[in-house]
């Protein structure tokens, strides 16, 4: 089956001449959760806005469910639900009405039962007859999600859904995302929280300065890009590392009681056995060994910096 969302060489130049997307290619599979990571101004919102029809692409093409977003905009937009980054809501409107309004706007006939289900799922049922301005920030964000879900979309875009949200609501949000995924909804979310991408995404895309630097399976990404560290605890403190160990990438702790060795898991040999051998040849007694893997966050920072240095 073709990808649910197919983005081909998508470029966006804003009116002022700023190129916010520089030829993005991306296929998003049906039913997956894709997390887009990237620093402020990377082009995440621009990418989403273009797919949803809020901004016009300068060139390139996008299809959703096999339909072109420009030629068949009714079909593609009907498939898409969007939770925008900013909390844009009419302050005087009532919760229930605004959700029903969204449903109608997307061409679905009135269905009070469905609206009720959605409000309950998002713990907003108690607030159904409140005005938006009477809600807290977290509740408003949930109203945005309820609006986006009101027409039962097959593709859901969540633009920083957990920005400024407390831990509990973030967990709720993750649960909601998991439920939607179970229903087969394709989900694209942007976030600045790497732990979020690690926790819920199937694939991770990294975008910076309008370019998609990589898209990969979360676990592959972490093993392929991941650097591991081996910490060697010593029996007796060392004042300096012996010269014979200089071809290893080692760092001696200040107290001289441990040495960290950084190595690449992708390399053919990790060099651990050789290192241990070199230690005993020097007569250094090893007390303990432990390894740790770098997180997505480290990977992300490395990637973005690498491209910044290259530029």
């Amino acid at each position: 089956m073709a990808a649910m969302v197919q983005i081909q060489d998508l470029r966006k130049v804003y009116d002022g001449g700023f190129e916010a997307l520089k030829g993005v290619n991306l296929d998003i599979e049906e039913g997956e959760i894709l997390a887009l990571l990237g620093p402020n101004g990377a082009g995440k919102t621009t990418l989403i806005s273009t797919i949803c029809g809020i901004t016009l692409p300068s060139s390139g093409s996008v299809t959703v469910g096999g339909y072109d977003i420009l030629a068949d905009y009714r079909k593609t937009r009907g498939l898409i639900g969007l939770v925008p980054q900013e909390i844009n809501l009419e302050p005087f409107e009532y919760v229930r009405n605004t959700v029903a309004f969204s449903r109608g706007l997307f061409g679905k006939p009135r269905n009070d039962g469905r609206v009720e289900e959605i409000l309950k799922k998002l713990s907003l049922w108690d607030k159904r007859d409140s005005k938006i301005m009477e809600l807290s920030g977290g509740m408003r964000r949930r109203v945005l999600i309820a609006k986006a879900l009101s027409h039962d979309p097959r593709v859901l875009f969540l633009d920083e859904p957990t920005a400024g949200v407390d831990v509990e609501l973030r967990r709720d949000m993750w649960d909601i995302v998991a439920q939607l995924k179970a229903d087969g909804v394709t989900i694209i979310l942007t976030t600045h929280y790497i732990e979020e991408a690690e926790a819920i995404a199937d694939r991770v895309g990294v975008i910076s300065k309008g370019e998609l630097l990589l898209v990969e399976d979360k676990s592959t990404l972490m093993t392929r890009m991941g650097r591991k560290e081996l910490r060697v605890d010593l029996q007796d403190p060392l004042t300096a590392l012996p010269d014979s160990l200089s071809d290893f990438d080692l760092a001696l702790a200040e107290d001289g009681l441990s040495v960290t060795y950084a190595y690449d898991t992708a390399a053919e040999r990790t060099g651990i056995a050789r290192l241990v051998g070199a230690f005993s040849a020097e007569g250094i007694v090893i007390r303990d060994l432990q390894t740790s893997q770098s997180s997505l966050e480290d990977i992300f920072v490395t990637l973005v910096h690498k491209t910044e240095d290259a530029a």
């Binding site: 029809g53 809020i54 079909k75 009907g78 925008p84 844009n88 302050p91 997307f106």
Partner: peptide
Amino acid sequence: PKFIGTIYELLSAPVN
């Protein structure tokens, strides 16, 4: 809607 930003919904809806 333009002023408060709710126009996003109109622009992303299947309407002409």
